[in-house]
Computed example of a mutant assay.
Amino acid sequence: MRKTIPIGAALLLASAPAAAAAQDHDHAAPAPAADDTCPMPDHAAMGEGAMDHGAMDHGDMSACRSEADEQLMDHSGMNHSTMAGEAPIPQTPPPPEAFEGPAHAADAIVGAEKMAASRAAVAREVSGMNLLWIQGERAEYRAREGSDGYLWDIQGYYGGDIDKLWVKSEGEGNFGEKPESAEVQALWSHAIGPWWDLQAGIRQDLTGPERTHAVIGLQGLAPYLFEVDAAAFISTRGDVTARIEAELDQRITQRLILQPRAEIGLSAQDIPELGVGAGLDTVEAGLRLRYEITRQFAPYVGIEQEWKIGHGADYARAAGEDPSATNYVAGIRFWF
């Protein structure tokens, strides 16, 4: 005759391995004790062969088993630091044997002279090696009503990450005539943040009434990737002027770039001999579409509108010039 195991005993037998495993895992709390609220069937009264499973309250028994399982699976008190495969991190210094080898082991394979030169090159690069960079931002032909003209805007620097020597030159004019404007600047540039350089130096005008100016300005990358170059000038005659340039590269493809650009000129006073009016004197706005044959060489075409404002417009009319001009441009942007 097959012996029937009472359900209460079966539950205790089933929980025994789990309790043993819990103790092996170093639980903070012992295995849960039996809950007096869990109803257990009276098997002695029912008899071994006459168990009525339909009459048993399985809902109460399920609740008891769920509660017991939750208690057995509570790992919050488990000491995981002693589990297999997790060694404690050593808190002592490296053993002396770690420093017994040569200081530059690669010298024996590559050669001491080559490795010394390589280490020196890495040190220069990491510490901010000096670089030479030159860019022709605008070198263009300008077609406009009347006579066609030209414009150049070239700048470059030599120096490291923090301090540089900047040289800038720009000017414009009509073919067959003297340049209308031409200047060169020499500036010391110091990084004051990840995106901005503070610049100071001198500017020399090469046309018209020659003037030398002290320069102080900011150059860098404004929010939304606008490249900004702003500077104030004080001439040897006491004239105070300022210029702000901003441009933005909008990539249409990896090589085709649309560049909006704007420039404004300001003056603290009228300068009749230069045709400059007090306040907002000039405004230029344009679009250029360039194609980068290589990153260092990119031809472009575009359109730019110029306006003389206020007294500056009056000076232009008095000289027989139109205070507003439209330029159709084609040029080259390069750097090396």
Rank of each mutant, 00 (worst) to 15 (best):
L132Q: 14
N79H: 13
A123Q: 09
A112G: 04
E140C: 10
L131C: 04
T82I: 13
N79L: 12
A84D: 11
P95I: 07
A139P: 00
L132C: 11
Q91I: 03
P88D: 09
G85H: 11
P94C: 10
E140K: 02
A112F: 06
V110F: 00
I89E: 15
M115Q: 08
V110N: 02
A123L: 10
Y141T: 05
E100Y: 04
R144H: 04
A105E: 10
E86S: 06
F99I: 08
A117S: 06
M83L: 15
G146N: 07
H80W: 11
H104W: 05
P88C: 03
A106W: 12
V126P: 00
G85W: 11
G128A: 02
L131G: 10
T82M: 12
P95K: 13
A103N: 11
P96I: 03
Q91A: 07
P90W: 07
A121M: 10
A143V: 00
I134M: 13
R124A: 15
L132G: 14
V126E: 02
A117E: 05
P88E: 01
A112D: 01
A116N: 11
A106Q: 09
P90Y: 06
R142V: 01
M115V: 10
G128T: 02
G111L: 01
A143N: 08
V110M: 00
S81P: 00
L131K: 14
R138D: 02
A103G: 09
A123F: 03
Q91F: 01
E140V: 14
I109S: 02
A117G: 01
A108Q: 14
G101E: 13
E125I: 07
P95M: 10
P95L: 11
I109A: 14
W133T: 08
V122R: 06
I109W: 07
P88V: 00
Y141S: 07
E137H: 11
E113Y: 03
A98H: 02
K114S: 03
A139L: 15
F99M: 15
G136F: 07
E145V: 03
N130D: 15
E97R: 01
P96W: 05
P88A: 12
S118D: 00
V126L: 12
I134K: 08
Y141W: 10
A98R: 13
H104V: 12
N79I: 11
I109K: 03
T92Q: 04
P102F: 14
A108D: 15
V126R: 08
P94R: 13
F99H: 14
A105S: 09
A139S: 05
Y141A: 06
V126M: 08
A105P: 14
S127A: 15
Q91H: 10
A121P: 00
E100H: 05
R144P: 08
R144V: 05
A108C: 09
G85E: 10
G128N: 05
E145L: 03
N130M: 11
G136K: 01
A123M: 08
T82L: 09
A117D: 06
S147E: 12
G111Y: 02
G136R: 01
Q135Y: 04
E97Y: 02
A143P: 08
G111A: 09
P93Y: 07
R142K: 04
H80L: 14
V110E: 00
